[in-house]
Design a binder for these strands. Structure first.
Lengths: 254, 254
DNA sequence: TGCCTCCTTCCACTGTGTGGAATTGGTGGG
DNA sequence: CCCACCAATTCCACACAGTGGAAGGAGGCA
């Protein structure tokens, strides 16, 4: 029972997916290269996407960019996500109380994708920013916490990808295995892939929902392990609180 | 020279567009109804969209919802929008200074769509929220300011739509005409479609960009016209400042 | 002005998407 | 507990929409 799939639609979406921060303005040639499609095909698809309002053509640059209507997909998605609705106020509260960054993410392909990231900020009290940002799975606490819950088959697939693209794979693999072990034993793991930033993460497994991951991070010069120890309990508590509230709201049921 | 268009892709996008705040969970039946497509077709398209990661299937509800990856379209779009990058900090500054809400929007189909809306808020200093939210063109200062710049043909089309769906059309039409006249004479217009809220808007016409609209609003019990008079100058100044900075950054050029 | 490159349009072919009809599956009622 | 109902999915033959190689255009740079 092969899941039916519409080739044109899939291809059109691949084109949209090619736009990233950093690759914000793409010509048909570049799109053809990245998607592996024939130039003629790309040309027709981009025209359709412009017609549908999802792309804008920038004549001087001979290139396309994502258009505003994609924002309303995001708005509708956020409005409709029970998990996010339940989690957001509690994440905010914790961020404020501990003066740390608190995030919520899910896996998409080989990256983790933030649904929300409350950035604690000295001055502007706190500014809820980046949603839709992506970070690598292999390097982040977020990603490793997710790997701990991923189906073995899927994890194997991804592992192959990582191995292919990371030069220091053996070292990384050991870190990842340790992190997974840590999640299994204690419910959370640490990583600091950005200098001076300590981040930890815990999976949030909810009935009838894909696995979400909560994380907490802060910029500090103190020893990572101590900081992590301090943050772990509140983070786990946050997860449990969200899970409880989610079920209470009838999440995942008729 | 009919613009080539890919039927399947168009239809798939129509399905995505059917999801709105309020219609956040849609079954195949409902989607078929809203898009006018055959149920079998919808079924196949939704499956493709699930495969592509843009929709999630909610088994208990027998329905679909938008999935997280749409957030990254929004993130990439915002990152790539020169207008938004130039405008956002200045909008923030004005909102803070005058303690008002400041927004930036474009037209999409028969609605205005916020790229950004800085909501001034007594307590949380200010919280940059809703982007991707939609408001009607006919009723808002935002929409009417845009109408003033719209190509006559397009305006005529929309006018027909409005007439069909608004019972108090004659009255509305007069308001709209007055607003357009106001934009032509003074560069801005007022409206207060929400009780106790006074809002004004001014078009932002930039080289090689679709028309954007800036708005400013605040909740007050004072007479609308006085408040509007006070806000109009700073709003127009904001627009000019943004236009200047946009050109300086090489916006719209090679 | 003329070359060069990239994008778009053309065209014949094929395979993919289509929608009515039959089937399955899941839910609420008897 | 089983049955009847409704909606979603799968099946199927057909038509035609989408495909990609190759030719034709439109800019940009020298």
């Amino acid at each position: 029972m092969p899941t039916p799939s519409n080739r044109s639609l899939e291809r059109g979406i691949e084109i949209l997916r090619a736009f990233r921060p950093g690759s914000t303005l793409l010509g048909n040639g570049e799109l053809a290269e990245r998607t592996g499609l024939a130039p003629a095909t790309v040309s027709r698809l981009t025209q359709t996407l412009v017609g549908a309002g999802l792309l804008e053509h920038d004549r001087p640059a001979r290139a396309y960019r994502l258009a505003a209507p994609v924002l309303s997909f995001a708005h509708a998605m956020r409005t409709g996500s029970t998990v996010l609705q339940v989690a957001a106020p509690r994440m905010r509260a914790l961020a404020e109380k501990l003066r740390i960054n608190v995030g919520l993410a899910v896996a998409d392909r080989s990256e983790m994708l933030y649904l929300e990231s409350i950035r604690y900020n000295k001055k502007a009290s706190l500014r809820s920013v980046v949603s839709g940002q992506r970070v690598p799975i292999e390097l982040t606490s977020l990603g490793r916490a997710w790997l701990a819950t991923a189906p073995p088959a899927r994890r194997a697939e991804l592992t192959k990808e990582f191995e292919a693209r990371r030069s220091n794979w053996p070292r990384l693999r050991r870190e990842i295995d340790k992190a997974i072990e840590s999640v299994r034993r204690r419910g959370w793991c640490v990583a600091s892939w950005q200098p001076e930033i300590v981040a930890l993460a815990t999976p949030l497994v909810l009935p009838n929902e894909r696995v979400h991951v909560l994380n907490a991070s802060l910029s500090t010069s103190e020893p990572a392990n101590e900081v992590a120890q301090e943050m772990s309990a509140p983070l786990l508590a946050l997860g449990e609180q969200i899970a409880r509230e989610f079920s209470a709201r009838g999440g995942g049921l008729a």
